[in-house]
């Protein structure tokens, strides 16, 4: 996977040099292990900062909203689907973009890895499918497949859906994945159990809105939780307010969420935020046969009316 990086750098340098873009958005090393950060390269001599490994879980489509300059963006499968969303929703113009597609083999779950060690983690490197973790001076080998982010383990769109440049051969998509086992597990519960399950799930929430800020879909100039006239939802950590925030945010992502996992990755207290969006994603797939961000030619189901839209719930 790190072989991609030479190609990414080369492409970025070429595009900046020949003036086809004003800026390249990619990843650079973060200040702590497993936390690559987005970076914005404007000069060809800065491309050496770019990196690519299994810690690039942030969704870069988030940084494209309403940009006017010509941008090259590094995009894995989910990023590319969010770029499609952005184009469909008129948040960016296709002709302003050069998409550097990266076939992705999944990102690793920093929280899961940190939880495997008693001492802090000093360094994480990788060699193909092996992740080498150094903690307290000792090196441990982990299989990448065992430490993938949950959404990456369940991903069926690893290759970018649109791209102008490709940094490696397209890879085989995962098949036979049971993407919605968690949704079904919750569905099998009684209403009281469901209520309690989400109550426990959300109890650590500190309302920091990191999930919202990391999400490329959340681009409203003023989010409903920040409005004060009128105030739609309480701003406290009252469990009801917290729940209202989470399910309303999920509803805003209905038919748009690509399950990139940026929300879960960003959560400082490790809430499985995807429990909300997965349910909506599954419903969208079952009711409208829709997966977000796969095509530029079709309007999203919640954006259009079709006579055969399911409407049994209206009595």
């Amino acid at each position: 996977m790190s072989l991609y990086i030479d190609k990414i750098k080369e492409t970025a340098e070429r595009l900046l040099k020949d003036g086809s873009v004003d800026m390249v958005i990619g990843f650079r090393k973060g200040s702590v292990p497993m936390m690559n950060e987005p970076c914005f390269i404007q000069k060809p001599q800065e491309v050496h900062q770019l990196v690519w490994d299994s810690n690039c879980g942030i969704n870069l489509a988030n940084y494209l909203t309403d940009r006017k300059e010509k941008i090259a963006v590094v995009a894995k499968g989910c990023d590319s689907r969010n770029i499609v969303n952005h184009i469909v929703e008129n948040k960016i113009k296709r002709e302003k973009l050069v998409i550097i597609g990266v076939p992705c083999t999944g990102m690793i779950d920093k929280r899961k890895i940190a939880g495997m060690f008693d001492k802090p983690i000093d360094a994480v490197t990788e060699d193909g499918d092996i992740i080498l973790v150094t903690s307290a001076g000792k090196e441990t080998r982990l299989n990448k497949t065992d430490v993938l982010q949950e959404n990456c383990a369940l991903c069926i769109h690893r290759n970018p859906v649109i791209y102008d440049e490709l940094v490696g051969d397209l890879i085989e998509e995962q098949t036979g994945i049971d993407r919605y086992a968690e949704v079904r597990r919750v569905e099998a519960m009684s209403p009281q159990e469901k209520w309690q399950y989400f109550e426990d799930l959300l109890s650590p929430c500190i309302r920091c809105y990191a999930c919202r800020n990391a999400c490329p879909l959340c681009y409203c100039p003023t989010c409903f939780v920040d409005e004060s006239r009128p105030q739609w939802v309480g701003k406290s950590q009252d469990p009801i307010d917290t729940r209202t925030f989470h399910f309303l945010r999920a509803y805003h992502c209905a038919g748009r969420c690509t399950d990139c996992g940026a929300c879960e990755r960003a959560c400082p207290v490790g809430i499985k935020v995807r429990q909300f969006t997965s349910k909506l994603n599954r419903d969208c797939l079952e009711m409208f046969g829709w997966e977000a961000g796969l095509t530029l030619d079709q309007r999203p189901p919640l954006d259009t009316y079709k006579p055969n839209d399911p409407n049994d719930f209206i009595k």
Partner: peptide
């Protein structure tokens, strides 16, 4: 409505009608 029931609102408590 599906998500509301998914997170523990009893079925039947939330209803929609077009009148």
């Amino acid at each position: 409505m599906n998500l509301m029931e998914h997170m523990g609102i009893e079925p039947g408590r939330l209803q929609f009608s077009w009148i």
